[in-house]
């Protein structure tokens, strides 16, 4: 802990306490929503209206502004879920378990969006809705991993045991993440290579890149909002018999 400033440590200690987390996230929510709405409005305006049509793909490429950020989120959320699951597994922190399981449906949603928008983009560009190439197949496996996590959690009644099982499944599935990321380089795929994260220079014009990055940031904020909403509900369900929940309800009357 010697590298982390004391106020940061104190912040995380307090956030791990359920009543504090519940109250703090309620106050935080309006700010998150305002930032999210501004980012999304700017990103959509830039992407759908200001940016020119692609010289090869015409206007169909505009699907990129949701397809690519969704695909990024599907990987990012999986890593958050696995790390939170590991923290819950090692230190038995209840809130880490809740963050892990609350991430699963959001990650599954982004994976679903990435697959479907990819399909809707592939049809006019490749002439087919689906091919069993490495990128598409590994992303589909990611969706099944998310669904596996959700199903496993629901199948075990004791939620602390369920969280342990889910964390192990999530950690094993991490092996799929680099496979998805490098699939377009390791194998010959129909899916195009990376346009943004190339090491030398992104092969995308600034007028297209800026809205794409705005949408990526907007989806990050969306994830935080959706994660907090799910976590608050899950926390309440788990802590229904705790004194702070009873006090909160009697004070609300």
């Amino acid at each position: 802990m010697f590298l982390i400033p004391a106020p940061v440590v104190r912040f995380f200690h307090r956030m791990a306490s359920p009543p504090h987390f519940y109250a703090f996230t309620e106050r935080l929510m309006p700010w998150l929503v305002v930032i999210f709405v501004l980012l999304t409005a700017a990103g959509l305006y830039g992407g759908l209206y200001l940016a020119p049509a692609d010289y090869q793909q015409g206007d169909s490429y505009r699907i990129i502004y949701i397809h690519v950020p969704s695909a990024w989120m599907s990987l990012f959320i999986y890593i958050v879920m696995a790390v939170a699951g590991a923290i819950g597994l090692i230190w038995r922190i209840k809130l880490a378990e809740i963050v892990a399981i609350s991430s699963a449906p959001i990650g599954a949603s982004f994976t679903f969006i990435a697959l479907v928008t990819g399909s809707l983009w592939g049809k006019p560009m490749w002439g087919t809705w689906w091919v069993w190439d490495a990128r598409l197949t590994s992303e589909l496996i990611l969706l099944f991993l998310y669904l596996g996590v959700i199903g496993l959690y629901g199948a075990i009644d004791d939620k602390r045991t369920a969280s342990k099982a889910v964390a192990i499944l999530a950690l094993v599935g991490v092996v799929n993440i680099p496979v998805i990321h490098y699939s377009v380089e390791w194998w010959n795929t129909l899916h195009q290579g990376p346009t943004v994260t190339k090491m030398d220079k992104p092969s995308i014009h600034v007028s297209m890149l800026i809205p794409l990055l705005l949408m990526a940031l907007s989806f990050k904020f969306y994830y935080v909002i959706a994660l907090l909403q799910r976590s608050r509900t899950e926390l309440l369900l788990r802590e229904r018999n705790a004194q702070w929940v009873k006090t909160m309800i009697s004070e609300a009357k």
Binding site: G58, S60, R62, I63, L120, W121
Partner: peptide, 16 residues
């Protein structure tokens, strides 16, 4: 009209 790609573009955005 999205340059003739209206169906693909707007279905993507609507579903999302």
């Amino acid at each position: 009209a999205m340059g003739g790609y209206a169906f693909y573009v707007w279905t993507s955005y609507g579903l999302t």
